[in-house]
């Protein structure tokens, strides 16, 4: 399969009870790009995000994540119900049981996809450094014996983890707040810390859910720079949901527009700006596109 697409979404369908939140959503995300998912309120952006990151189990369709040199089916690792055929094939049965027992959204992250949340979810009672250390859980020495005896190898792993912590604190400009509680930080700082925390899991693609919400213009500008750093210096693909059209148009290589649970347009910023369907979705058919580009 192609390695140029880090994420492929095919025929994604999501139903909540009788409500069809997503209806046959298709898009691919190019490796190393900054892509944006936009759309009016209630279009299903966050639902797509939650399906991609494994927090919702999609009702139908396929999400393929090619990262870390292998392909992961996001829906499969969440644990699917048993199929009749499983009972005749022990291998399939055991695999399905494994995912049913130990599967879940954490496997999506381990496969190389990290995310942030619309309403920030930090470990508020823990320090900034600790927040970033938790994110490296899968990369440090987790042996109980080594940790209790405080062995050389354990100390080395912890030191490396701390170095990574301070590297990322440098990137998001939070070194001075390293030993404060995450809950005490200002809103903008919390948003930045959350991005740093996602990056500490060493993802190939990071999904940012409204990263600029609630930021002032200068903070938004800093954020734009940071996202470029992620893409250019760390080869991380960035997918974001955002309402700040100025920022989206400025930063994105590729934009997917969602409305009423369907993709209505895909393409580069210039295509999207002039796409009549998009303008209609945002403003109704008659209005000009002034406000969209604002």
């Amino acid at each position: 399969m192609s390695q140029e697409h880090v994420l492929k979404v095919e025929n994604l369908v999501m139903h909540f009870g009788g409500i069809k939140a997503l209806n046959d959503v298709n898009f691919d995300i190019q490796r190393g790009s900054v892509s944006a998912l936009i759309g009016p309120n209630g279009a299903g952006k966050t639902t797509v995000f939650n399906c991609l990151t494994g927090f919702y189990k999609a009702t139908g369709g396929k999400i393929t994540l090619s990262a870390g040199g292998k392909e992961t089916s996001v829906i499969k690792v969440l644990g699917e119900p048993f199929q009749p055929a499983d009972f005749f094939s022990p291998v399939a049965f055991v695999r399905r049981l494994k995912y049913k027992m130990f599967g879940g959204s954490h496997l999506v992250n381990r496969a190389g996809l990290a995310r942030t949340f619309q309403n920030i979810r930090l470990f508020k009672e823990m320090s900034v450094v600790e927040n970033l250390l938790v994110a490296q859980h899968m990369r440090v020495n987790r042996s109980l014996i080594a940790g209790i005896l405080n062995t050389k190898a354990y100390q080395k792993a912890e030191e490396e983890a701390l170095e990574r912590v301070f590297y990322w604190l440098g990137v998001v400009d939070l070194v001075d707040s390293a030993n404060r509680l995450a809950g005490e930080l200002s809103y903008g700082q919390q948003r930045r810390l959350e991005i740093a925390r996602a990056m500490c899991t060493n993802p190939e693609i990071v999904c940012l859910d409204e990263p600029a919400a609630g930021l002032n213009p200068s903070e938004t500008e800093a954020l734009t720079k940071m996202i470029r750093v992620l893409r250019d210096e760390h080869n991380t693909t960035v997918l974001l949901i955002e309402h700040d059209m100025g920022m989206v148009m400025d930063i994105s290589d590729y934009i997917v527009v969602l409305d009423h649970g369907e993709v209505i347009a895909k393409g580069g910023p210039d295509d999207i700006k002039n796409n009549p369907k998009v303008i209609a979705a945002y403003l109704g058919a008659e209005e000009d596109d002034e406000e969209v580009t604002l």
Binding site: F16, G17, T46, N50, F55, Y56, F117
Partner: peptide
């Protein structure tokens, strides 16, 4: 009961 949908 209705299955609980987690609020993310």
């Amino acid at each position: 009961g209705k299955p609980e949908v987690e609020k993310v």
